[in-house]
Amino acid sequence: MSVTIIFGSDGGATKGVAAKLRKKCQGRSVDIKDATADDFENCHLLILGSPTYGDGTLQTDWEDNIAKLRGAKLAGRKVALFGTGDQVTYPFSFVDAMGILYDEVVELGAEVVGFTETEGYDFVESLAVREGKFVGLALDLDTQSGLTEKRVTAWLSQVLAFAPA
């Protein structure tokens, strides 16, 4: 089974999570700046990751390269999402970028896997919450870094179960 992780990262936190995921699943990780249509389309499971900036926007490289995602053929594909954010400083936009990516891939016909519980987080609202769950793996590396390894491991085993062999 092949897994491709496409991420955007400025400060390195989201890149670090992508690297951790890559190692755990023997996948490939690609910065969105370098991603091609093949990176989106030629894998069994596609994982997309972005930090959320300020009041709830995608990371700059994602914004600059969103046409790459929009041009990908994702209909019927399994896609998982992860987002990094700071629930204390930005409680009204925690991991909003993950919700933005969710809307993009659903519009392209992808099947999103890997929803997670909101329990254990302390935020007010998020575009990444649908029907009471996060649309993917929400990570706060600023205030809950001690939970990252456990959350990554549990989530990855969940999403890999959905990927076709």
Rank of each mutant, 00 (worst) to 15 (best):
K23N: 10
E63M: 11
V17W: 01
R130L: 12
R151W: 10
A138W: 10
L81I: 10
L137G: 04
N42L: 10
L81Y: 06
R22M: 08
G16F: 09
D122Q: 15
T153K: 15
A128L: 04
L108S: 06
D122P: 03
V3E: 03
M1A: 14
E111Q: 13
R77G: 05
K20A: 11
D140G: 03
D55F: 13
I5D: 02
V30K: 10
A67F: 13
T4H: 13
C25G: 00
D38L: 08
K23Q: 13
G27L: 05
R22V: 02
S126N: 07
Y90D: 11
A163K: 11
H44I: 02
A75K: 12
L139I: 15
W62G: 00
G49I: 06
G16A: 00
N65A: 13
A72C: 05
L127R: 13
L58Y: 07
D38K: 12
K68G: 02
F40V: 02
R77Y: 15
G8W: 08
A13W: 09
Q26W: 04
K33C: 11
V17G: 02
Y53C: 06
L127Q: 12
N42G: 08
P164T: 03
F92D: 14
Q26Y: 09
G136H: 03
G54L: 12
D61C: 03
F94D: 07
L160S: 14
E117T: 08
I66L: 15
L101I: 04
K73I: 04
G8S: 11
A80N: 12
V88T: 15
R77Q: 12
A67G: 12
G12E: 07
L46S: 00
I47N: 02
L48I: 00
I6D: 10
G49P: 06
L48Y: 00
G11S: 11
V135T: 15
S50Y: 05
H44L: 03
K15H: 11
G56C: 01
P51M: 02
